[in-house]
């Protein structure tokens, strides 16, 4: 059965989007304590005030948190392991982009005798 729904507008999770701790827990399906642990691990860097109640996160961090939780769960990692995996993955992604850019800049190789 197919069903059509039109004109759905989502929320772009970019740096400008701000997410409260309550929204973060709901979106990730975790407790405040688990978010606090991720912040303690340096995985998330909340803006806003000092206490968790005043914390706000960027949309990009929503993706990071979900990714870290998935890695943690699916690969049975602890939080520190998931944080390390995530940092390395992000570095690899950045390097891949650089390589692609440099490859594009390189000219065609011409063999000469």
């Amino acid at each position: 059965m197919a069903q059509h729904e039109t004109g759905i507008e989502g929320v772009l999770l970019d740096e400008q989007t701000r997410v409260s701790i309550t929204e973060m827990t709901r979106v990730c399906g975790v407790s405040v304590e688990q978010v606090r642990l991720m912040v303690g691990e340096g995985l998330l860097q909340p803006g806003g005030g000092a206490g968790p109640d005043n914390w706000s996160f960027s949309g990009v961090e929503v993706r990071r948190a979900r990714r870290a939780l998935r890695l943690q769960h699916d690969l049975e990692l602890n939080l520190a392991g998931a944080a390390l995996a995530l940092e390395l993955l992000e570095e690899v992604e950045q390097l891949r982009r650089r390589v692609r850019a440099l490859e594009q800049q390189h000219g065609v190789i011409c063999e000469v005798d």
């Binding site: 197919a2 069903q3 059509h4 729904e5 039109t6 004109g7 759905i8 507008e9 989502g10 929320v11 772009l12 999770l13 970019d14 979106v27 949309g59 990009v60 929503v62 993706r63 992604e93 982009r97």
Partner: peptide, 17 residues
């Protein structure tokens, strides 16, 4: 079937929720 609006200015790897 969903009809989704993609806002102007999205970048590689970004997510829309």
């Amino acid at each position: 079937t969903l009809n989704v609006r993609i806002p102007a200015g999205v970048t590689e790897g970004q997510q829309i929720r």
